[in-house]
Simulated assay, not measured.
Amino acid sequence: MYASDALFTWMASGARPRPVVRTRKEFARPAPEDIRFPVDVVYTWVDGSDPAWQRRRAACTGQGYHAEAANAARYLDRGELQYSLRSLSQYAPWVRTIYLVTDDQTPTWLDADAVDVRVISHKEIFSDANWLPTFNSHAIESQLHHIDGLSEHFLYLNDDVFLGRPTTPQDFFLAGGLTKFFPSTALIAPGPPGAEDVPVTAAGKNVRTLIEATFGTVISRKMKHTPHALRRDVLYEIEKNFPYAHRTTASHQLRSVDDFAIVSSLYQYYAFHTARAVPGRLRYAYVDLSHPALATRLGTLLARRDRQVFCLNDTVSEEGDMPLQHSVLSAFLQSYFPVPSPYEVTPLELGSSCVTA
């Protein structure tokens, strides 16, 4: 008899048609651990060099409560998204659809006609148009489950997160529908949130307060900068059960000391306490782009290629440091991911579009 070859490898998605192969009847049935539901991916992305975006940002009153929120490194596009998509294409071929959430921006290299990619405007997902424009990643993340057509189970990635080795859906989900999360060894600082806290710390502290009030437990660990495995039904439940926290975060145009880290902390601990998420393990690396040994660390990562996921993060670099960082980072990413993804226009197409413009 014949059956889909998706039955014989976790690297293939069971949610889209696959070629059939000849097999025995005994082998043509799915196993209990096989994941047969579709998995989509959501990215958030911004190009801080875009003049139209800069005008919107300049018109937004206020500067945010903490200097890190306004640091140029937060909005700088170093081309990471292009290579993160290459990593996804190379190491997660089981993904169904990719959604790119932006403030009406589209990367010049992205093939907008690619069947597996959709660019989503903030206007399409925010519950209240009065909250826009927004420059607060916590606010944008609070609305991701509103994407029309998004699969029930999905991964959320920042553009500085990359897959470094082959992955399977089982790395992020259980076949019964539970999601996995990946606690960090980094701890949420003690005490209440304050103006001296960087935005991620304040948001983590707010989650800690909410989890303790709801479940009576005290959380202490942050999450690693990995793809976050999420379920839409749980996110809608969080929006319903914690309306103040949700609306407060979504309404802040700039990062605020009152924000909640909804998809990178609250979801994980709420889903765990309600028996819909479990801790998981990934071989993971975090590289700070402002570290003086950046080139050495990237060289080691490239030579070993032993991490399933790695994050190349920067929130504190000064503008004078960025050209050297960009040079080192570009060389690393091109060496690690030299093969273009199906989501890119060819250099010829890119060149011709520039001429006609």
Rank of each mutant, 00 (worst) to 15 (best):
R24V: 08
A28S: 15
R29N: 06
P32Q: 11
V46E: 03
A52W: 03
R55M: 13
A58D: 15
C60R: 04
G64P: 07
Y65A: 13
L76S: 10
S84W: 01
Q90C: 12
D103I: 02
Q105V: 04
D116M: 07
A129M: 00
F135V: 05
S142M: 03
H145W: 10
H146P: 00
D148S: 09
L150W: 01
F154Y: 15
L157G: 02
L163N: 01
T168I: 12
P169M: 04
G177W: 09
L187S: 09
P192K: 14
G194F: 00
A195C: 02
E196N: 11
A203V: 03
V207A: 06
E212R: 08
E212H: 14
A213R: 15
T214H: 06
G216E: 01
P227R: 00
A245L: 01
Q253I: 12
R255D: 00
V257Q: 02
D259H: 02
V263G: 07
A277R: 08
Y284P: 05
L289H: 04
L294H: 03
R305A: 15
E319C: 09
E319S: 15
S330T: 12
V339C: 00
P342W: 00
L348I: 09
E349T: 06
G351Q: 05
V355D: 14
T356L: 07
